[in-house]
């Protein structure tokens, strides 16, 4: 289980995350959604031990998070620089040597599923294929927690579809917990169990997708817009 208690993260003068308290159960697919600058990436980095909270506590399985959480949490980087001189297969071998929970067979199978040529050097791959490779090495870890930060940004619909299918096929529920930030809510909604809505660094809602649809008779995008317009009105 992931538990944030009164977490605030300040960068110089601005607060990226304000007084957030949040519990996320294991074995679920959870979407973190909200407009640009609402604090989604900061929240993920706090979970992954890449940032320390200015105030409050972040715990995973009752242990306060620090960099060592990388042992049981796989984080998908959106960094541009990604082992350009290795081939896909060499990258898989490298990950295999670095992570005890890496499943090489799964990686090779997933690379095939994603139509990747494992002999190709990463620097010659298209943007879409580079994204596929990152997904392959991240999801091939049998880590209890998998965190994907904007896995679809700047990708065409075919690549987005391939990545969603890869997630459905290769994530193990309920042994794994998947946390994902995205703006492509409509496309991702069918694979989400829960959504957390952020606005200006605050959590304004946390619901199951079934409840959103059952109670409000609308999908997550419309629900989020409604929440935002209510919040905007109460401010003005």
């Amino acid at each position: 289980m992931i538990q944030l208690t009164n977490v605030t993260k300040r960068y110089l003068a601005t607060k990226a995350i304000r007084q957030c308290t949040l519990s996320m159960d294991s074995g679920k697919v959870i979407g973190i959604i909200g407009e640009n600058g609402s604090g989604k990436t900061t929240l993920l980095k706090l979970l992954s031990g890449l940032l320390k909270p200015s105030k409050g506590i972040v715990e995973i399985d009752n242990v306060v998070v620090d960099r060592r959480i990388a042992n049981k949490l796989a984080f998908l980087t959106d960094s541009e620089y990604f082992f350009p001189y290795l081939s896909v297969m060499e990258l898989i071998e490298f990950y295999n040597s670095q992570f005890d929970d890496f499943d090489k067979e799964k990686a090779v199978e997933m690379a095939k599923f994603m139509n990747l040529n494992v002999e190709q050097k990463i620097k010659y791959l298209s943007k879409g294929n580079k994204s596929r490779v990152k997904i392959v090495v991240t999801l091939s870890r049998n880590a209890p927690y998998v965190v994907l930060d904007e896995p679809f940004s700047g990708l065409d619909p075919m690549v987005r579809k391939a990545i969603i299918n890869g997630i459905i096929k290769f994530i193990n529920m309920p042994e794994q917990t998947l946390i994902i930030t995205t703006h492509e809510i409509k496309e991702v909604e069918p694979i989400l169990d829960e959504v957390v809505v952020l606005r200006k660094g605050k959590i304004i809602a946390h619901e199951t997708v079934d409840n959103v649809r059952e109670v409000n008779k609308m999908d997550v995008v419309d629900w989020m817009e409604q929440l935002y317009s209510k919040e905007n009105m109460s401010v003005s």
Binding site: K28, N165, I168, K169, D193
Partner: peptide, 10 residues
Amino acid sequence: AVEVGVNTNT
């Protein structure tokens, strides 16, 4: 799950 495009929990 893969056929209809939803997660395995569903």
